[in-house]
Design a protein around this nucleic acid. Sequence first.
DNA 1: GAATTAATTCAACGAATGATAAAGACCGAA
DNA 2: TTCGGTCTTTATCATTCGTTGAATTAATTC
Lengths: 248, 248
Amino acid sequence: MAQRTAVAVRTRVGGQKQPVAKRPRLARAGGARRGDATRQVILDAAEQCLAAGDFDGVSLRTIGEAAGVDIALVNYHFGSKESLVEEVTGRRAREVHDARVLALEEARHAAGTAPPDVEAVVTAFLQPWLKRISSGDAGWQNYNRLLCRLTMMPKYLPLVSELLDPTALHFINALRAALPEASPESIYWGYMFLLGAVVQIMAGTGRLEQLSRGLCTTDDINSAMREIVPFVCHGLRALERTATEARG
Amino acid sequence: MAQRTAVAVRTRVGGQKQPVAKRPRLARAGGARRGDATRQVILDAAEQCLAAGDFDGVSLRTIGEAAGVDIALVNYHFGSKESLVEEVTGRRAREVHDARVLALEEARHAAGTAPPDVEAVVTAFLQPWLKRISSGDAGWQNYNRLLCRLTMMPKYLPLVSELLDPTALHFINALRAALPEASPESIYWGYMFLLGAVVQIMAGTGRLEQLSRGLCTTDDINSAMREIVPFVCHGLRALERTATEARG
DNA sequence: GAATTAATTCAACGAATGATAAAGACCGAA
DNA sequence: TTCGGTCTTTATCATTCGTTGAATTAATTC
């Protein structure tokens, strides 16, 4: 098998490379196109596969097979493997960003004239996220793991930055207002601690379950919030305290 | 080109698969073998490459080229790509584990009869790690990123568990003694928070630098410790407090 | 219904991958 | 020197990868 047919003369017309932009340009009146369902199926399958294996390890054939579509369709709809991963991550990133900003706005209204306190900011940051993680849609854990892996690969820093910076700057500002005594540097550190602590544990790595031999689980959002929020909030307040000590 | 020679008849003697164990079994008297230098060079190059790209994306050819050795040597010394990554991670894991256990022992001696407090345990956990990270040896950041990515891939959970569980259980015990009021569950959560917060920020992802536009940096171990230790310790103590509140 | 456009399928391309067999180079011991 | 084992090189294997041209089917427009 795998015998190459001796004929197979293929005239390549255009010598140039043009690996992108195959998707038609105009949307239909109603907005929904015929291939939109296919796009969604591919995105879902890609997300699932990419969260399991790593980027280069997951082949378009695997994704296509999981989605039940032909391989060539992936390239037809997304142009390349690279832009596929961008759409996979961007889809989730936009949704959770919007929900977080909305939650923060609500916290601002609830707080009245004063800025929301640390608990309110942290809750606005975590609630939309954890709610989705424990919604039963495994896609959110897949997304978290994928994003965390991308963060750990320097060459994806621009993509990660594009995906996460808007949210980060938004909540760093809110934290600054909630912790007026903390130095600007400490706020950045604190935000990274907050993010790291939660990502690591809520990405569905199975580490918590394995270490505790089933005693703990990340499935229940309420118990998760009960552990996470106090840890993070007290940690953040400590940054304010050390700043005061350093000054005094 | 890439024209297959029509002859090229190769009799495969053993039909079975035996992809492993090419390395000779016995060590020489002096301990040092002729190929040990080669092994080290390959391990270093592999670590560097694996931290940049992802596991399946980095080819043995890339690693061999970076190490300045022939590709076949990689398979000769390590048997397969998979066992190469195990050796790469195991080498660092053992070193930092031993250093941490030693630091914890010293903290126990310093504390006398009472168990070391939270600050002492956390410092024993972080100091050996951060010292290596900011030692100038970029290999430690590479190792951190690689390990974090492996943690985010379910199929590597057994390997990650083998690498990290000994350290984890060691320090979870110490934390339990330092936080007698906290529930067993909270200790597991707290350890994961501790690990996550620090890994995320000390893996050299560049996120902290990017977000703070250069205001913060993870290069200086002293300033890093000054931010991390208070955050983590106050967070851990908060777990104890919530447990008391829940009980009362 | 014809023409046009979008979506899908099929088959193959060239390039790169991990692996290995076979032969050569090196080296200490007899 | 010769021998036996360790280490290295060469050349190639079968397989899989991302991508693409061309043909086919389905939907929309005139």
